[in-house]
């Protein structure tokens, strides 16, 4: 099994840390992983993306031009990455602030109202965990149990009291994710 994922959005949305937790979760289930962030000028321009690869075999190229899954958290990312999802692949996006919705009919597209849900939970900072929950519900590449182990490993000890809040956010994401209706 190899899963090639792009996560993209604004800086500050937790794109890189979501990728890191996903990578840690992969390690917890003894997979090979790579986490390749955008670190160049695009990072300084306010957008962030990270390519995460989880695989049972040695990971080859950490740089890709097509993905099994795209997790897209703003309009620029939808515009940039929709066409790069492999046919039959998966896209998850937060419809909040999206005006031009994805239109492909050869991939599976899901929506998660993560920003709204995180605000309702009075914990906007767990936005990225709601999204992560949506992803592992639709495509269970990693077990929730391993995600929690991954969180424990990636968060410094002084933040471990936040793990339950994050776990709740992941579970909410699993509950609210839904297939997107195509705006044909």
């Amino acid at each position: 099994m190899t899963e090639e994922i792009i996560i993209a959005g604004f800086g500050g949305q937790g794109v890189l840390s979501m990728g890191k937790i996903l990578a840690y979760s992969g390690i917890m289930q003894e997979q090979e992983v790579s986490w390749m962030p955008s670190y160049g000028p695009e990072m300084r321009g306010g957008t962030a993306n990270v390519t995460v690869i989880l695989s049972d075999d040695r990971v080859s190229s950490p740089v890709l031009q097509s993905y099994d899954t795209a997790i897209l958290l703003n309009q620029q990312s939808v515009d940039k990455f929709e066409s790069l999802v492999k046919p039959g692949g998966l896209m998850i996006y937060d419809p909040n602030s999206i005006t031009c919705h994805p239109e492909r009919d050869d991939i599976r597209i899901f929506q998660v109202n993560a920003a709204e849900e995180a605000a309702r939970m009075k914990s906007p900072i767990t936005f990225n965990m709601v999204v992560l929950g949506a992803y592992i519900k639709v495509n269970p590449v990693v077990d929730l149990e391993n995600v929690i182990k991954g969180l424990r490993k990636s968060l410094p000890e002084r933040h471990h009291h936040l793990i339950p809040v994050n776990e709740k956010a992941i579970q909410r994401g699993m509950e609210i994710v839904k297939a997107a209706k195509l705006h044909a």
Partner: peptide
């Protein structure tokens, strides 16, 4: 280079 330097792996 930055690709190997900035990338995280196990």
């Amino acid at each position: 280079d930055g690709l190997i330097g900035q990338m995280m792996e196990k």
